[in-house]
Structure formats: C-alpha cells, structure tokens
Design a protein around this nucleic acid. Sequence first.
DNA 1: TCTTTATATTTAAATATTACAATATAACTA
DNA 2: TAGTTATATTGTAATATTTAAATATAAAGA
Lengths: 120, 120
Amino acid sequence: MDQTGIRGNAAARGRTPDSLIPALKAIANPVRLQILVWLKEPRANFPMDNVIADPDEYGICVTQIQTKTGLAQPTVSNHMSVLERAGLVISTRVRQWTHYRRNEANLAKLVSELGNTIGE
Amino acid sequence: MDQTGIRGNAAARGRTPDSLIPALKAIANPVRLQILVWLKEPRANFPMDNVIADPDEYGICVTQIQTKTGLAQPTVSNHMSVLERAGLVISTRVRQWTHYRRNEANLAKLVSELGNTIGE
DNA sequence: TCTTTATATTTAAATATTACAATATAACTA
DNA sequence: TAGTTATATTGTAATATTTAAATATAAAGA
C-alpha cells in the first residue's frame, strides 16, 4: 500500500489518468455534448410517434438524432461512434434501427474522476 | 421564473452551456491536464531551489513547467495561454518570469457545471 | 429476389490542434 | 547602452477533427 493509503488511484498520486482524455475529447464537442443532454430525457426531447422501441430502455435511433441536429447522416453516425468508443453511450440494434442511450455509470464515473483529477 | 424554479440555469433546462466547451477543450489534452494536476502541489512537483516568488501565492514560472514537460518553450507558452483563456489558470508576471497558478474557483465550477450538464 | 429504409464505412475537403524554429518583446544586469 | 534571460508571437509543418458526398452493408417488405 502506498503512502496515501489508496491503491490504484492515479489521481491521488498526482498522475493523470489517461483514460480520462478520450472521454474528455468526446464531450469537448458542442454537438456531442448536446446529444448527451438530449438523451437524458428522450421522451421530452424527441418525437414519440412511431417509436419502435422503448426510449427509456433502448434510447433513440440515429435518424431522430440526425433530424434534431440537422447534420448529415454520416456525421451523426460518426459522432455516436465517438461517444460509444469513449464508453459514454450504449448502442442497441433493434431490427434496422441502431438505438443509443446514455451509459449512466460511465458518465457518473467521468464526472467523479474529473473531480478527483482537477478538483482542489 | 421558469417551471424549474431556477433562473439562468441552462443545464436545468436541458440546454448545453456553451461556456463549458472552451474549458472542456482546454482540459481534453494530456499535457494541459497534467500541468493542472502538477499545479495542485507546486512545492511537491517542481524544484524549489532558486524560486523567485512564493509558489503557493503565484504558482510556477513557464521555464519550470517547460522543463518538466520536455516540450519546446513556445509550445508550453501556448498551452498556458489556452488554459488562461479558458479561465483555468491565472498568470502573474514577477519581473521577467510569468507565473501560472490554478484558478480554483473556475476549476471547481467546471466540475460542478459538467456534473449538472451530463450527470443523471 | 428486388426495392426500400436505416446505418456504417470510405473518401475527401475544410478547419483546428499540436509542435517547433525563428523572431520579437520585455525586463533585468553589467 | 549592450548583452542576457524569460516569455510571447509568428510562421509553418504534421496531424487530428469535423463535415458531407458517395458507397457499402444490413434488415425489412413487396
């Protein structure tokens, strides 16, 4: 055990947890940050007519996110895969529709790890 | 007053506070994030011989940060100005030495605003 | 099977970021 | 004032990011 009494805690020893950087890069983009906020309340932020899967369980499909952002389909597809690679969303394919929902555990971990890293 | 009972709170209304993005971009870089961590404990992370100003009050000068990173002087100067423009550090020129210290208030605000924005 | 719909991948252009060399500026020192 | 030290700015190259058009793939329905 080290002097801090905390094992495996890079931030506590003054080192930067490299795993933070990909997540920070993912959210340091206005489009992606906005999508994460919208996905907090899928039913409030996306049209609920003709939904083919429960938004609370599976999230929102790419077409609806694309419409809401006004960006091209490949652009949105790319943004979602950046978020997914960073572990901030989870995708579920329901027939031909890929649905994305927030990864609440990892989002909470990101905020707390950032607090441990740059907080006083 | 709006329905949330919270005035001027963009995150509470599901919008993305644009002021977050510059700060997130600033910390979404391994060199800058590391510098912010080092500046938490200037006396522990930088040589304390020949210091020309109290590290706790004024922070650390560019040359010492440059030496610690191993990057070129203009590169470090640029990183520090990115952090300063994002409001995450404060600079004080003491004679010919520009010292940088953490802006604790804004760093804490960044963490809490991020929590309000992407937290559950 | 053919067509349509939804999403992903590829390619490419525009822009942003990161880095360093060269130079400029600011401040001290002899 | 001339020379030195510390930092900032400018110019530039390499790389990364963002975007969209074109194309590919995957799944559904006629």
